[in-house]
Amino acid sequence: MEADNLLVERAKNGDMAAFSELVLRHQKSLLRLAFRVVRDLQTAQDVVQESFFKAHQKLQSFEGRSAFKSWLFQITLNTAKNKLRARTFETIDTEKTPLVEAYDVEEIMMNADLKELIQDEIKKLPNKQRIALNLRIFDDLSFAEIADVMACPYDTAKANYRHALMKLRHRLSDTLSIEGWHAKQNKTLAEVDA
């Protein structure tokens, strides 16, 4: 498989097939990323299209100092956040919004209430910590890639992730016990930490 940077160079020289390959390669990740922010499939699709469009328009400015994927993630995150802001002022036509059916495996593995609770706790995290956590756990990015996306030093990206995880661990401790995740131990996390 041709490396992203080679495809980018070809695309910069006007090779549309090369850019098309980049779209194919990254559109799934971008759709998931956008959906996590806007929580609506139609809007997430719009974000993906717009992000690739912007990337193509600004391709000459991409110097390859970070990975192309990180650069795309950065554009998508910004586009999704802007869409979210704009959507606040729009009326959403629910008739046109496609229904999203629950994913079976997920349903089996996790109670919907618990999922919501965890997502609520994630939402409460400070912005930078939340982004670092999402990029690491949901998008499986390395800390170097996260640092690129967040435009911050490597250690800062890692520290934001660590802080997010420690907070969630602390806040979810009761829930973990209730859900039987700690069936074999009655200790609270605080006791374990002590």
């Binding site: 759709l31 998931r32 990323l33 959906f35 996590r36 929580r39 994913y103 997920e106 593995m109 996790m110 618990l114 999922k115 965890i118 997502q119 994630i122 956590l133 756990i137 949901f138 995880l165 969630l168 979810l172 973990l176 995740w181």
Partner: peptide, 9 residues
């Protein structure tokens, strides 16, 4: 648990 709470699922 966080991984399984991914809205993108």
């Amino acid at each position: 648990m966080i991984e399984l709470s991914d809205p993108a699922l």
